[in-house]
């Protein structure tokens, strides 16, 4: 199971990891019921802080995407197929948006920055509400 994270991207590492796991489930690299690598293994392979990995796993468990069985490890939930439908819908939205933005003549980098900008503002708005 190969995960990749980018330390220099602005996205928090634990979020990148949850994204990687969700993507793996979506593409069939991970099946419902299949075991995830241990926190330790992911931390060692990616040379990242184990608490960050643990946080990603906790988030995924909270969202019902994985189940943590004490003593045996973390497994992809049987119901993990659920999020994929949402992701497919979301993918359609993003595809339309990007096609439109590209038709304005924007470069990839410009589009990416616009999206990151909005996400950053959304994130701070959310944390203000909390």
């Amino acid at each position: 199971m190969l995960f990749r994270v980018n330390q220099s991207s602005g996205v928090p590492l634990y979020l990148q990891l949850t994204g990687q796991v969700k993507h793996a489930i979506e593409t069939g690299a991970l099946h419902p019921g299949e075991q995830l690598p241990t926190i330790r293994k992911v931390a060692e392979d990616l040379v990242m802080n184990p608490n960050t990995v643990a946080r990603a796993y906790r988030e995924l468990e909270h969202e019902g995407i994985i189940e943590v069985k004490h003593g045996s490890g973390a497994f992809v939930s049987q119901s993990a197929a659920g999020p994929t439908k949402v992701l497919r819908k979301a993918q359609a939205v993003v595809q339309t948006a990007i096609e439109r933005l590209a038709s304005f003549g924007l470069t990839d980098e410009e589009i990416r920055r616009l999206i990151e900008n909005e996400l950053a503002l959304l994130r701070t708005e959310k944390s203000r509400e909390e």
Binding site: R40, A43, E44, V47, M48, N49, P50, N51, V53
Partner: peptide, 27 residues
């Protein structure tokens, strides 16, 4: 370092100039 922290819960205190490395492994 990461392996020790993960497997044994070892506390790690390290000084460094290598900020990208610190960013990777420090919490």
């Amino acid at each position: 370092i990461v392996s020790l922290a993960a497997a044994e819960g070892t506390t790690v205190f390290f000084s460094s100039h290598q900020l990208t490395e610190v960013e990777r492994i420090a919490d």
